[in-house]
């Protein structure tokens, strides 16, 4: 483990990140559509439901703003990770995998690339926070940190699943059985109260994204269900676990 080794590996991480960033810059339509979707949730869905629903003292649209930020991280990150199925199909990864760089470094480069994509999209949504009167702009840095940690975990999860799948059919399965349940069971669209049926409350508490939504809501709207340290603890453990799982599966990938 000489200095040269570490420098080479860091360069490898950077190379993969650089590639992902170039792709991100180039695929403008993908960025636009990934921003438009949360905006539709906020302004079409949020305004529609909000016409007859308020939550506590919050307009419904303001209330779901943290939830939609979390949704963007969830969808953007997992799909980014799953995208390696496509990369492998096109043999794009092949040339990278034979380079004298460890799999772990390539994996980390991918994770950083995915987080950069997602966080840049989040920043676009933050720039619109003035449209949501209840949002406290001073809470944005804390929210950003929570979302970044979540993104690390979710990109890793996507890469882990992506290294398992051989074909693109996996996309549908993951959407139906993982991404949508995680989203709907996170409290992104409704408050977690005693009124929720017990089974639903149980599932919500098992969902790591719940703690992201709760933490971000605490930072931006100052309403929490769980103490902030619990939110942090859960998503840090989730991210660390996924990083580990992802790097193991990615290293074993054929």
């Amino acid at each position: 483990m000489d200095n040269g080794f570490i420098r080479r590996e860091l360069m490898g991480v950077y190379a993969v990140w650089w590639r992902e960033f170039k792709v991100f810059q180039r695929e403008k339509s993908r960025i636009v559509s990934s921003i438009v979707q949360p905006l539709m949730w906020l302004f079409l869905f949020g305004s529609g439901i909000g016409a007859s629903v308020t939550i506590g003292s919050f307009a419904y649209r303001d209330y779901i703003y943290p939830g939609i930020l979390s949704m963007l991280v969830l969808f953007g990150s997992v799909y980014f990770g799953l995208y390696i199925v496509w990369d492998r199909k096109l043999d794009v990864l092949k040339a990278i995998l034979v380079a004298p760089v460890s799999r772990i470094s390539i994996f980390l480069g991918k994770v950083l690339g995915g987080c950069t994509d997602v966080i840049l999209q989040i920043l676009v949504l933050f720039s619109l926070s003035f449209l949501f009167p209840a949002v406290n702009p001073w809470g944005i840095p804390l929210a950003l940190l929570l979302l970044l940690i979540t993104a690390i975990g979710m990109v890793s999860l996507g890469l882990a699943l992506g290294s398992l799948f051989e074909s693109l059919e996996g996309f549908q399965v993951v959407s139906a059985f993982l991404i949508f349940p995680l989203f709907f069971l996170s409290g992104a669209l409704f408050p977690i109260t005693e009124k929720l049926p017990l089974w639903l409350r149980g599932l919500v508490k098992l969902n790591p994204l719940t703690y992201t939504v709760d933490g971000v809501r605490g930072a931006l709207l100052n309403v929490n269900v769980f103490p902030l340290y619990v939110d942090f603890l859960v998503i840090i453990i989730f991210a660390a676990g996924m990083l580990f799982l992802g790097s193991v599966l990615f290293s074993r990938m054929k």
């Binding site: 590639r19 170039k22 792709v23 180039r26 096109l90 043999d91 794009v92 092949k94 040339a95 034979v98």
Partner: peptide
């Protein structure tokens, strides 16, 4: 290595 199947990054 130049592989049998093309492995260029066609986005770049």
């Amino acid at each position: 290595i130049v592989f049998q199947d093309p492995t260029l990054d066609t986005v770049l």
